[in-house]
Amino acid sequence: MAVLNRVLRLRAASSFSVRSFRSSSFLNSETDLKASSSVIAQNSLPLQRDVKDRNVQWVFLGCPGVGKGTYASRLSTLLGVPHIATGDLVRDELSSSGPFALQLAEVVNQGKLVSDEIIINLLSKRLEASAAKGETGFILDGFPRTIRQAEILEGVTDIDLVVNLKLREEALLAKCLGRRICSECGGNYNVACIDIKGEDGKPGMYMAPLLPPPHCASKLITRSDDTEEVVKERLRIYNDKSQPVEGFYCSRGKLLEFDLPGGIPESWPKLLQALNLEDHEDKQSAAA
């Protein structure tokens, strides 16, 4: 509760849309009952404010390795809002030898979910830092992962839109096992070349590798948790505990389902179209 109270103190300092925490049931009002019957089509955008507004408050959902960080980062640059990735917050804590480092190392290496208390603590510190710098809006990546986290977040701030990225499992597994990090600059790359042939009415899929520049090629390392055993365990945990979050946001009319058709060249333009942002990127490119 102390952590939650600290998050709530952001109301006084930040320009985020924040309201007081509520502990009551979240599907007991007439509004919620009406919202639970609504289904958001792939190309509709349930936003109340202009998507070009810097105050957008979005969440990216999806299995580990689906590409949440890649697309959330691109959108944060496009819209000029902070990209807050809980995975990065965890890795920063691990590398800083902070108070949760040893506990986090054990959890991450076993492919388990980090506790709500630790994640909320790390997230609250990140939001406080954003408020101190005068940043507005955000794109959350990797949070919430459970219904309890979604309820806490709903009580703290108004989320405009939840983008649920989806990728077929065979491509997802290959993509996770192909991830590499440059030990010197920290750049993220992927050596997997995914080429799935279409069959049984399903379209094929091609995802080219994201190879490093020559000066990073000899410095690539694999994350300790990117083994087949750990990746499969992460996917199992996600399916068991995190997918219900999709239903939570769908019942509120905030969920946008997006099936990735391939790699970045194929998926990025289609994602912008689904978000009604294709014109915005054209204008930004022309001004650059």
Results as ranks from 00 to 15, higher is better:
residue 49 R to P: 00
residue 208 A to T: 05
residue 185 C to A: 12
residue 140 L to M: 13
residue 282 D to G: 00
residue 148 R to L: 10
residue 288 A to S: 13
residue 211 L to P: 15
residue 261 P to S: 03
residue 62 G to Y: 09
residue 203 P to N: 10
residue 252 R to H: 10
residue 109 N to Y: 08
residue 276 N to S: 01
residue 151 E to N: 03
residue 115 S to V: 14
residue 251 S to T: 03
residue 259 D to M: 02
residue 239 N to C: 05
residue 287 A to M: 10
residue 182 C to K: 07
residue 203 P to V: 09
residue 10 L to V: 12
residue 266 E to P: 03
residue 234 R to S: 13
residue 153 L to V: 04
residue 178 G to M: 02
residue 196 I to K: 06
residue 254 K to I: 10
residue 240 D to Y: 11
residue 199 E to Y: 07
residue 182 C to V: 07
residue 13 A to T: 15
residue 88 D to W: 07
residue 50 D to N: 12
residue 21 F to W: 09
residue 78 L to T: 11
residue 34 K to F: 12
residue 182 C to I: 05
residue 150 A to T: 04
residue 97 S to C: 11
residue 250 C to M: 13
residue 242 S to C: 08
residue 192 A to Y: 05
residue 155 G to N: 13
residue 247 G to S: 10
residue 97 S to W: 05
residue 93 E to C: 13
residue 275 L to H: 04
residue 131 A to G: 10
residue 120 I to L: 15
residue 135 E to Y: 06
residue 102 L to I: 02
residue 223 R to E: 03
residue 262 G to V: 09
residue 22 R to S: 07
residue 50 D to K: 04
residue 98 G to P: 11
residue 155 G to V: 01
residue 89 L to N: 09
residue 240 D to T: 14
residue 58 W to V: 13
residue 26 F to P: 00
residue 34 K to E: 10
residue 284 Q to T: 14
residue 192 A to I: 05
residue 225 D to H: 09
residue 274 A to C: 11
residue 127 L to E: 14
residue 281 E to I: 15
residue 254 K to Y: 09
residue 202 K to L: 12
residue 164 N to R: 08
residue 155 G to E: 09
residue 128 E to L: 03
residue 284 Q to K: 15
residue 233 E to M: 10
residue 155 G to C: 09
residue 23 S to Y: 08
residue 234 R to D: 09
residue 261 P to G: 01
residue 257 E to D: 15
residue 18 V to G: 04
residue 156 V to M: 08
residue 55 N to V: 00
residue 149 Q to I: 06
residue 226 D to L: 01
residue 126 R to F: 12
residue 255 L to R: 10
residue 137 G to L: 01
residue 52 K to F: 03
residue 1 M to E: 09
residue 29 S to E: 04
residue 224 S to R: 09
residue 16 F to L: 13
residue 167 L to S: 02
residue 238 Y to D: 05
residue 87 G to I: 02
residue 172 L to V: 00
residue 119 I to G: 06
residue 101 A to M: 01
residue 117 E to H: 04
residue 150 A to H: 05
residue 105 A to G: 15
residue 260 L to R: 08
residue 131 A to K: 08
